Amino acid sequence: MGRKTWDSIPPRFRPLKDRMNVVITREVPRGSWTMDPERTIAGSMDDALNAVGMTVLDRRAFVIGGAQIYKEALAKAETKRILLTRVLTDFECDTFFPIQLNEDGKAEGWERKTKEELDRWVGETVPEGVQEENGTKYVFEMWERTW
């Protein structure tokens, strides 16, 4: 995750439990990363992947934002899937996901997978259909790279 994403997580929820938390920031020189008990801090996406690879081995790595971090991750051949929470409620905002994943399931270089495929990949039953929390409607989707 990027530094702003890390900062947006309320301190009582940091670090995110049961996972390695890696924060990518310009405050660390590219080509380096450091670890502390709360998080690993990396100077670039490649440094973050190196840090994860050295400590996590065969686990999955997830990117949780922000926009620049998503853009860098999507440019990597290693990025095979997108687990998308499609927010159906309109908000005024200034940051957007860097690629267009259409509601009709079509996108250049990407294909939306079925609910069953999503459940199988994550290893649990994901809520189906439109969900709502505090007046915000959303659906869970999984997309796979087609090229």
Score class of each variant (00 low, 15 high):
Lys17Tyr: 00
Trp121Arg: 15
Glu144Asn: 01
Arg120Trp: 02
Trp121Tyr: 15
Asp7Asn: 11
Arg12Cys: 12
Lys17Val: 15
Pro127Ala: 05
Trp6Arg: 08
Gln68Asp: 07
Thr95Pro: 06
Gly135Pro: 13
Ala75Phe: 00
Phe62Arg: 12
Ala75Lys: 02
Cys93Phe: 10
Arg3Trp: 10
Glu78Pro: 07
Tyr138Thr: 10
Arg120Gly: 14
Gln68Cys: 07
Glu111Ala: 14
Phe13Asp: 09
Phe91Cys: 06
Leu83Thr: 03
Thr85Val: 12
Ala73Arg: 02
Thr125Ser: 04
Glu133Ile: 12
Glu108Ile: 01
Trp143His: 05
Gly65Arg: 07
Ser44Met: 11
Thr125Cys: 04
Gly105Val: 04
Glu117Trp: 00
Ala51Leu: 04
Pro11Arg: 02
Leu83Pro: 05
Leu74Lys: 15
Gln131Val: 06
Trp143Cys: 07
Glu72Ala: 09
Val28Gly: 08
Thr95Arg: 03
Glu103Val: 11
Asn134Arg: 12
Arg81Ser: 10
Pro98Met: 10
Met45Val: 03
Ala51His: 01
Ala67Thr: 15
Thr89Leu: 05
Glu141Pro: 15
Lys80Pro: 00
Val122Trp: 10
Val56Pro: 00
Trp121Ile: 09
Gly43Leu: 00
Thr79Asn: 10
Asp7Arg: 09
Ser44Gln: 06
Trp143Leu: 04
Asp58Ile: 11
Asp90Phe: 05
Ala75Tyr: 00
Gly31Lys: 06
Gly123Ser: 08
Ala77Pro: 14
Thr5Trp: 12
Glu133Asp: 06
Arg59Ser: 08
Arg59Tyr: 04
Met54Ile: 01
Arg19Cys: 02
Ile24Trp: 00
Ser44Lys: 05
Leu16Ile: 14
Arg30Cys: 08
Asp18Ala: 08
Phe62Pro: 01
Asp46Met: 04
Glu141Gly: 13
Asp119Tyr: 00
Phe96Leu: 11
Trp143Gly: 12
Thr79Met: 02
Ile41Gln: 06
Leu83Arg: 13
Glu78Asp: 14
Thr79Asp: 02
Asn50Pro: 03
Asp36Trp: 03
Tyr138Gln: 06
Ala48Val: 01
Leu49Ile: 02
Glu78Thr: 15
Pro15Gly: 11
Ile9Ser: 10
Glu111Gln: 15
Arg145Gly: 04
Asn21Trp: 07
Ser44Asn: 12
Thr34Ser: 11
Glu78Asn: 07
Glu92Arg: 13
Val87Asp: 10
Thr55Met: 05
Arg112Leu: 01
Asp18Leu: 08
Lys4Leu: 13
Val130Cys: 11
Lys113Asn: 05
Met142Asp: 05
Glu111Asn: 02
Val63Phe: 12
Lys71Leu: 11
Glu108Val: 04
Met45His: 00
Lys115Arg: 13
Lys4Tyr: 08
Thr114Gly: 09
Asp94Leu: 10
Val22Ile: 15
